[in-house]
Design a protein around this nucleic acid. Structure first.
Lengths: 335, 335
DNA sequence: CGCTGGCAGTCGGTAGGATCGAGTGCCAAC
DNA sequence: GTTGGCACTCGATCCTACCGACTGCCAGCG
């Protein structure tokens, strides 16, 4: 699509702009060792790149900055895969060999790890209900009127909800419902299993129904657990206060974030640049995502969200590494 | 400490400054209906207030702004307790009558509620291990090498951790350990109960030890669950980018926040203004806290964190209302 | 004696204007 | 096709003057 020299120039502009956040002029590019022509030639080429939509000028007589299309071309034509430096690579390995906590904690800490690696906002979406099976169900009475249902899933995560007890429940009936549900869900997926059939005791059935409908709130569409870290740290990459506020506010709306990641991944992308992802308040942001895979199944997503002028090679490397390690770590739990 | 007129003037300055965030001059104060003297008199009084440390001038020939000491006097001498307007009051009631979810969700949503009420960062610290008793313990095998321990506490919260299984464990031994732990912890506090005694089977004992030491990470000092909402929204109240970054970064360090609240509450305060709380990066912030109480026991804390020029009466009213309702709602679970 | 109106003085904020310089587009020459 | 040179553009920066919101002080009034 672009000849070699234009590609080299575009690459130089993107790299420079990512570093400095300043419009880059032809003479800067000429200084780059990859490009061995004079600044005049570069000016001509840059004019063409601008006409074709890869670059833009904030104003006449300023340098050029990449457009979304420019970034897109850049990431699609990366020469070298990014590498994490030794220290960071080390940090990831240490993290995943030393962590020994509940899945929920591990995901939450993974998001902090990714934050430290990239300095952008790190997002980890937990395993969803479709891909895990139920290992154990238990109903626990809290008082005469309330109880909790606790489910342990095959990936080690635990979901719980409280619900009101019917009048005529008793400890025995709670136990009955517990074993009824255990038999019913044994090694079945929470989301795909049919509702439990009758048990012979109407109160037990009532208990099961109440417990399951409480649970349904949790396993509904898009209700995957979400861990966001470092929104604040990334925000400093923007200078317009207005933008910062929008971005932070959007990041607090969990379902927007989850569906954003799902959507990007669903379109087979690993990088969504600026307006590509379609979430308007995040138009100044790019997203780098990777699924994490356990037993050949995609069970969740990790990603980073940063300004469009983020360091894509680095972010790609970090996200990939964390997703791989996370998948491997979670696989250990199930094997 | 201050005569009535000085108090009125200080009050007027604080109120005005909270609203406008601009230094307020003597003529503005003179316009306030509570003060019925000329601006010249007010100037004299303000000079005294400044000398005594209640007000300060950003520079000569500017209006005055309150110092931390000024805010402190203001909140200590509030005439009228703040009231939430009808709409917000309504919102709180609706929230607490309609929510029917697991404790963890309720706390998380409470923090969002408080955020909506005040537009400052809302903080909810969950019940800690000392004040709850164990209702149920269960060990669930995830694979041949790993298992999860799940505890349901009397307040409806659920804590879980994973741990490695010893070589010679079996489903039967997991069940044995489960019932051993259940008997041991029955209606005892997780934190204060002694470690379980021997059961007669060394593998079962091993299981119990491993499970409990995994759990210990969770119930250790200062490990109360924390829900922070709306850090971003509050940040817009500051204009110095530097400050915003510090504040947001600090808010992401959970243990700092938890101990801050504990500390403030421990000193018997409900409001900590600016430097009073001693957390240096939050020197530009004030904190309003209230414990929530279940069965006469303080089990957790709610609070808001905002700029020192926050609307104290409003924040106090909001925090108090939410803490009361939250306590009442949690009490229902246990009764 | 306390309160008030008036007045001179201070100083940050803003607007206008000159200057600077990084960068462009174009062109003639190689 | 590439290059050096040149005229031009335009945001950023600095300076200056000015404005206005204050204050502190003082003399006079009730």
């Amino acid at each position: 699509m672009l000849d070699e020299r234009k590609t080299a120039i575009l690459r130089a502009v993107v790299k420079e702009y990512i570093e400095t956040a300043q419009p880059v002029g032809s003479s800067h590019v000429a200084r780059s060792p990859e490009v061995r022509v004079s600044s005049a030639t570069i000016r001509n080429e840059m004019a063409v790149l601008e006409q074709e939509g890869f670059l833009t000028q904030p104003h006449t007589s300023a340098g050029r900055i990449p457009t979304d299309k420019g970034y897109r071309y850049f990431v699609d034509h990366l020469t070298s895969r990014g590498h994490l430096d030794a220290a960071r690579s080390q940090e990831v390995h240490e993290f995943f060999t030393s962590t020994h906590r509940a899945v929920e904690q591990m995901l939450s800490e993974s998001s902090r790890l990714l934050l430290r690696l990239t300095d952008y906002a790190a997002i980890v979406v937990g395993p969803n209900a479709e891909t895990t099976t139920v290992r154990s169900v238990q109903l626990v009475g809290l008082s005469s009127r309330m109880a909790t249902i606790v489910m342990v899933l095959s990936n080690g995560s635990v979901v719980n909800e409280t619900f009101d007890l019917p009048e005529d429940s008793s400890d025995a009936r709670l136990a009955g419902a517990t074993s009824h549900l255990n038999v019913h869900f044994h090694n079945r997926s929470l989301a795909s299993a049919p509702p439990p059939g009758p048990s012979g005791d109407v109160t037990v059935d009532d208990l099961c129904t109440r417990a399951m409908s409480a649970m349904a709130e949790r396993t509904g569409e898009g209700e995957a657990p979400l861990y966001v870290g470092g929104a604040a740290r990334m925000a400093q990459a923007f200078d317009a206060v207005e933008v910062v506020r929008n971005v932070l506010a959007t990041l607090e709306q969990q379902y927007v974030v989850v569906s954003l990641l799902k959507d990007v991944l669903g379109r087979g992308l690993t990088v969504a640049i600026g307006a590509e992802h379609g979430v308007e308040p995040l138009a100044a942001c790019s997203v780098v995502v990777a699924p994490y895979i356990v037993d050949g199944e995609t069970v969740g997503t990790v990603g980073v969200l940063g300004p469009t002028r983020m360091n894509y090679p680095h972010a790609l490397a970090a996200v990939e590494m964390v997703s791989e390690q996370l998948g491997a770590r979670l696989a250990e739990v199930e094997s």
